[in-house]
Computed example of a mutant assay.
Amino acid sequence: MGNTDNGDAADRLRTLEGRIWRFPTGSVNKLPRSGGPTHPEAPLDLDIIDHITASVREAQDHVSANRTENAGPMPANVADVYDWWRASTPSLDAERTLAREAVIYRQGLEHAIQAGDTKVVRKHPCPECGCWGLFWRRPEKRAVCANRDCRDEDGLARMWELKHLAHEHVTRQKMLKATAT
């Protein structure tokens, strides 16, 4: 399947990694007198660290389960994890290669959303109606179709997990490549 989305996922991970450090916005000496915090917040964004750790762990788990050749140890730079993953699993069958690429693409979407770019879901058509009206709904952690006619059996707007959008995207890219040659 090529590295069509590797740059996006790796670039997004690199961007997210750059947001780990938080710089204090106020002075510790100017805390409110009533029940406020007694110490400044952590200088690291722990949510981003947890997200990156989970993403890398998922890649490691997939490599451990599907390794066909030895590509060496995990890279020191976490943004290189996707190249390492592909190098560690070059001989996968078509179905497993598609699954790997879908996970990489999904992680790229997750990295962007974690960094605050929820517009990445707008670049995907709704899997049900095909319209380009998806938007991110943070509480549900799902993309929602804005088309009023695209409703589920309960009459609610259709929602999609990122893994579904990623699978649709990677499958569509594979079909486009197959018909282009």
Rank of each mutant, 00 (worst) to 15 (best):
H51T: 01
Y82V: 05
M74A: 07
T68F: 15
P40V: 05
D80L: 10
A54P: 01
E58S: 03
R19W: 01
D61G: 02
M74E: 07
P90A: 04
N70S: 13
P37Q: 12
T25L: 04
T68A: 06
R19Y: 05
W85M: 08
N66W: 15
L16P: 00
N77C: 10
N70E: 04
P32D: 12
R12T: 07
R67P: 07
D47M: 01
A79K: 05
D45P: 00
G35S: 11
E58R: 02
P40A: 10
T25A: 09
W85F: 12
P24H: 04
W84G: 02
I52W: 02
R12Y: 11
R22K: 06
I48D: 10
T68V: 10
H51I: 01
L92R: 12
D61C: 02
D80S: 10
D50M: 05
H62D: 14
P90V: 04
S27V: 05
Q60A: 14
V81K: 01
E69F: 14
P75K: 00
A94Q: 05
V81L: 11
V78F: 15
D45V: 01
S88T: 00
V63G: 03
I20V: 12
A59W: 11
A54R: 14
F23H: 03
L13K: 01
G36Q: 00
R67Q: 15
A71H: 13
H62P: 02
P32E: 07
R22I: 04
A65Q: 02
N29S: 12
T68S: 15
S64D: 13
R33Y: 15
A87F: 11
D61S: 04
F23E: 13
R67N: 09
P43T: 06
D45Q: 09
D83S: 15
G72T: 04
A87S: 12
E17S: 08
